[in-house]
Design a protein around this nucleic acid. Structure first.
Lengths: 244, 244
DNA sequence: CGTACATTTGATAATCTTCAATTGAAGTGG
DNA sequence: CCACTTCAATTGAAGATTATCAAATGTACG
């Protein structure tokens, strides 16, 4: 619980405040949470399906994802997570993991013991509400992804995802000055998130580049014409439930 | 809060107890919730995207769904709901609806005021936890649906859904003696839930019938060979987080 | 400078959608 | 009881989208 750890918890405060209002004292309560740091290389699993964790993961640096696989080994990424996210908050009340949490890039995480989060959520109902809200927003994002998976064509679905990432990174102050952002994932990862083949991702990306909507080089994605991309891919950020 | 209303709330108690343990006194607290009854014809919307409801909907009779639509009017059903479900519990903490709640069959619902549920969740932390858990299980089902939408073929995805409905109805005691169940929806509804075309639903259904796995006539679905269907469609009910 | 990994390209095949028409089932009014 | 309408389900045919297979090119790094 040194200076550095407090700094880590600022990330969480910022994330929660993107969607909920917190008082000074509530902020301090979050900042006082203990955190055990650890890092993982890209491609490794942090928590596996079937595990029964006794702590939650706060992403501190890098990108993580949750995914499930079919018996035939096909993989579907169901969410993408960036610093400030607690991807497995649900493990507080659903003891057994129904999916896997994996590192997309190299990631640094901070573990927060379940018992501490449970204690906070009993003693601070408004913080409980903020955490609950966070899991509800997660679910809202799932709904939007389902709409994309089921009813959008490849290019629009991809454009929609890029718009979502832009909004979410903006909300926690992680955009570069030119509104670009680091996207340290492979096209194979993207194909698993969008439910399409790797080859089709490559071609859909080329389409977005050809029409001048985005550029993506050296792990940095830039949306070149945000209004046009949002319009084409039917993007409306209301489902992120950010308050301003 | 007459006898009849108490009976309605038993549905909710039963639903919550499928996933969480409740004490006698907690059951009574649920049963004491007020409920305003109302019914809706098939195909009508109960709560619309953008609405800011001040009450939650408890399904009492019939089938409901949540859905979203793209700008081009394509519809994706993101969840199916049966008696005992509170499909819009998230509206307690996410004021603005990001999707629509609609009636698939004729439905009867009971409205429960937000203020009462909020009061209960502050005064009874274990009930708050049960409700939170319910929204978390919702999200778990979303994840499984995403896997189906993104990575399963049409027939397997459909078989998987039928297995899920079987499990969920079983958990609240709504299966018939022969393990069949009422499925009062159209193939068009099913196509919107599975993210495929109506024609393809018709053909996939015929495939499931041809191979002797299911029958579906007069709004009653029977799984004829449950082990085989579960095996083929890679079904594992762990994601429903039911406790036994 | 070689190796591993990521991306791109081409060609072909499977899956799924769309369009259009037909059949079936259920209800309505004369 | 019978046309008539409406809605749901099925069928056929054609076409679009997306997947799969295989190979080539590009890039990063020890």
């Amino acid at each position: 619980m040194n200076q550095h750890v407090i700094h880590l918890m600022r990330l969480l405060v910022k994330k929660l405040e993107a969607a909920s209002e917190l008082s000074q004292s509530e902020e301090h309560t979050i900042e006082a949470l203990p955190a055990l740091q650890r890092s993982w290389p890209a491609g490794h699993d942090i928590v596996r399906e079937g595990d029964q964790p006794d702590k939650c993961v706060l992403i501190v640096k890098g990108w993580a994802c949750r995914y499930k696989t079919t018996a035939q080994g096909k993989r579907q990424i169901v969410s993408l997570h960036l610093p400030g996210d607690i991807p497995d908050l649900q493990s507080l009340f659903l003891p057994s993991m129904d999916h896997t949490l994996g590192a997309l890039s190299g990631v640094e995480v901070a573990f927060i013991p379940h018992e501490r989060l449970r204690a906070v959520s009993v003693s601070h109902p408004r913080l409980a509400r903020a955490l609950w809200r966070d899991t509800l927003i997660d679910a809202s994002i799932y709904r939007e992804w389902m709409l994309g998976l089921g009813r959008r064509n490849a290019v629009d679905q991809m454009g929609h995802l890029f718009c979502e990432l832009h909004s979410r990174l903006d909300a926690v102050g992680m955009l570069n000055a030119d509104h670009s952002f680091d996207l340290p994932i492979t096209q194979a990862d993207l194909s698993d998130a969008l439910g399409m083949s790797l080859v089709h991702v490559s071609r859909s990306l080329q389409e977005l580049r050809r029409t001048g909507l985005i550029s993506w080089t050296n792990g940095r994605l830039q949306i070149l014409d945000r209004p046009a991309l949002a319009e084409q891919s039917d993007y409306n950020p209301a489902y992120l439930h950010l308050h301003h």
